[in-house]
Computed example of a mutant assay.
Amino acid sequence: MDINEIRTKVAARQRITPEDAAYLWQNATNEELQALASQVRDRFHPAGSCTYMIMRIINYTNVCVAQCDYCAFYRLPSQDGGYVMQQAEVFAKLDELLQLGGDLAAFNGGFNPALPLAYYCDLFAAIRARYGDSLEFYALTIAEFMYLADHARLSYPETAQRFKAAGVRWITGGGSEILTEDFRRRHSKFKYTVAQYFEAQTAIVAAGLKTTATMVIGFDETLAERLEHLERTRQFQDQTNGLASFLCWTYKPYFTQIGGIEITTQEYLRHLALSRIYLDNVPRIRTSVLTQNERALEGLLYGADDFDLPIEDEVTQKAGATIDLHFDKILAYARTLGFTPTYRHVPQPEPVCSQV
């Protein structure tokens, strides 16, 4: 195997294998990864273009019984400092989002045993009634969706229909981290298995809801585990065509139980390129300003085409992430890299791959 064989494959729109991906990771230069990732990116998007959103992650509760050892945010039900937001607090955050020019909110909390399904359905129905289509919201992560289904003793299809009736359109791929059973046993043993994760996501797609793929790197995962995550994601997209995008970000180790050293931005960028080359059936690859700040925009050179400008996310901020609200400066950096950023509204139709 050599780089020329892989170049030929990508040019012919043939799939790379896990072995090809491992070779690229271990042997390809940054420039070679950029060229291959950009070639795949250009199947979906005009060269030199990129899109962005201004968004807010609303952490509606910090009470969680999952006890993931990489999380600095949660409080157990018996601990001080736990909270649950009421609708008025959520509305205030949404109003501020609109005032700042954003129109996307995402909800991320945890496994709070005191919150019934009705709390969520009432909240989301109230948001849809109050704001209509003036903003969109990612209602839950898949991990939270699974917990709520079990807590309510409902099947995944039944739970998906409950949320759909409450005005929910999106349930995102959050809670995936690294989708291998070994990783979950090491770090989040009270979360669900990989098989259960994809069972829930399949039910979400079957209900007519939209979803995304996510990945977090920089724990103690191996290259083989990263590639297994990408392979499972690609297979799921083959089966459902339900993934609107793929977002990868990096683990922030500060104030967490397992600690560690944050990986470099360059490692993140190389993984982003590998993801773009591997996920030949996912239209949109998103780079993480939340965890990489302005340098995330360099991901546009490594195959990404889209990014968030976040105004809040307590989960990652508690673990060391910093948020820069100087959006003009960040957008200017995209332009210096040779890209023209355009604001993207979530309801906009997603691009469709012309050929794998």
Rank of each mutant, 00 (worst) to 15 (best):
M1G: 13
M1P: 12
N4M: 03
A12Q: 11
I16T: 08
I16G: 02
T17H: 06
T17Q: 02
P18A: 06
A22T: 07
N27H: 11
N27S: 04
E31A: 15
H45V: 10
P46S: 13
G48K: 15
N62D: 08
C68F: 12
A72E: 12
S78F: 11
S78P: 03
S78G: 10
S78N: 09
D80W: 01
D80F: 03
A88V: 09
V90R: 06
F91H: 12
K93N: 12
L94R: 03
L100K: 15
L104T: 10
L104P: 05
L104I: 08
L115A: 10
A118K: 13
Y119V: 02
Y120V: 05
L123V: 04
L123K: 06
Y131M: 14
D133I: 01
E136L: 09
A139M: 02
E144K: 04
M146N: 05
Y147L: 06
S155L: 00
E158Q: 10
K164T: 02
A166L: 02
V168M: 01
G175H: 14
T180A: 08
E181N: 15
R184G: 15
R185V: 11
R186T: 08
K191V: 10
Y192M: 00
V194W: 02
A195I: 00
A195Q: 09
I204R: 03
V205L: 03
G208P: 10
A213Y: 13
M215Y: 12
F219N: 05
E225N: 09
L227K: 10
E231C: 12
Q239W: 12
N241H: 15
P253T: 07
F255E: 14
T265N: 14
R270D: 05
L272C: 09
L272H: 01
A273T: 11
I277F: 02
D280P: 13
R284G: 04
I285F: 08
S288I: 02
Q292M: 13
R295M: 14
L300S: 05
L301W: 00
E312W: 07
E312S: 15
V315K: 03
T316E: 14
I323N: 07
I323V: 12
D328Q: 12
L331N: 12
Y333H: 14
P341A: 03
Y343P: 04
R344P: 06
E350K: 09
V352I: 15
V356C: 13
